[in-house]
Write a protein that binds this DNA or RNA. Structure first.
Lengths: 226, 226
DNA sequence: ACCTGAACACCGTTCAAGT
DNA sequence: ACCTGAACACCGTTCAAGT
């Protein structure tokens, strides 16, 4: 983590929505959700807190915009596979990696329902679900199952990263601590959680994530049963 | 000279962790996440903000405890069906309804990964997944797919409710506004989002949620394909 | 042991005043 | 049009002092 050594310089470029968003992303990446403050941000931009409000409506606006920048970049970078299921897999994995690199995106996504960042993901999934030949009236449920799963994992990942950062430990230390806690639970009341504590320690987040996507994709292909 | 303000009713029972949690839940239900403050809470309990710290470690501790109380109640109330898939469905629906009634539970759940409230849900799902005969090494991925989907929907629901409350509108007004926004998107870039905007307006959250659960359950029963 | 309430170190946001 | 920075109305948390 390198700290910018340019102390109190004057801005040579004018403030702009874009430069504010870029600086916010750096702050969020560097020190988590708690690191983004109108004061730290304005210090970084060598201006006063009030100046930011000329370009940005509110903090939640700022967070959504920063989130959208990351999501847009992620969706643009992806190579779309011709096979719909492979394309969905790739999209999901791309989002997983983006949230892993920028944990705050996970929670920002949850806090802006129906907003542009989420619509980008929805659209990407939706086009592939259509290509898969899912009937019109089932498309929404199918897409929302995939989307909500991605959001769920993303939020969880974000929280893990956030907590680890707050406590000064890293992610694997944190998972280790959770595994230990789980293995100490009452065996009669929590047999499953105890039995799975070991797997929690050893598991590969990314592979497990993909396994979940595959499980849902498998459901799409399967005939419906009553 | 004003004497001791007997008028503002003095607490007759001693403060306790439980009474604090109960008051917190009332506050959260009544005015959302923003409504829970150490000041509003201590006012409600006719005490000073500092007193609460004798029983509770921090605000996040308080939020997790309040969340756990709701989750525990929900899990206890459920009737466990003998058929594992029906039992999973019932559990999921129970959580959906609980989050619907207490939107703040959705986000509290996301902010306390690996903590007791989540373990309760995990355990409930895990026991049924076992009963379903899913092989040991696939149990974790299966349970986490279901759990993360529930968390994703829950978080989304919480955010909707939260936003609607902030804006003074209700949930259906909010969905209406989102649908209108989506139907105005560029048809070339967002064909799917546009086409689905109508369904968004008409849809039944609860039924769609269940459709997602069923989709995942269907995946469990299906053979794995390459 | 438990409670009180002032005080501390922060927040997001506003706004009169400057250029 | 854009920026400044003090001021406002809050936060969570601490802590000396009380009972």
């Amino acid at each position: 983590m390198v700290k910018k050594a340019r102390s109190t310089q004057r801005r040579e470029e004018a403030l702009s929505r874009e430069s504010i968003i870029d600086a916010s992303i750096e702050l969020l990446d560097g020190s988590g959700e708690g690191g983004l403050t109108f004061r730290t941000l304005s210090e970084r931009l060598a201006t006063g807190p009030g100046a930011i409000y000329w370009h940005i409506a509110s903090k939640s606006d700022l967070l959504t915009a920063a989130c959208d920048a990351v999501v847009a970049r992620t969706m643009e970078a992806r190579v779309v596979d011709a096979r719909p299921k492979a394309a969905i897999r790739a999209l999901a994995l791309g989002m997983f990696d983006a949230i892993d690199a920028h944990p705050w995106v996970g929670s920002a996504l949850t806090r802006a329902p129906g907003q542009l960042p989420m619509v980008r993901i929805l659209e990407g999934i939706g086009q592939q679900v259509r290509a898969l030949g899912v009937p019109d009236e089932e498309q929404w449920a199918t897409v929302s199952a995939l989307l909500n799963y991605i959001l769920g994992v993303g939020g969880q990942n974000a929280a893990n990263g956030q907590l680890a950062q707050t406590q000064g430990t890293d992610r694997s230390d944190f998972l280790e601590a959770v595994a230990t806690e789980w293995s100490r639970l009452d065996p009669d009341e929590y047999p499953f959680a105890r039995s799975v504590a070991g797997q929690l320690r050893a598991h590969d987040d990314r592979m497990d994530f993909l396994a979940g996507i595959d499980l849902i994709l498998r459901g799409i292909g399967s005939p419906r049963r009553r």
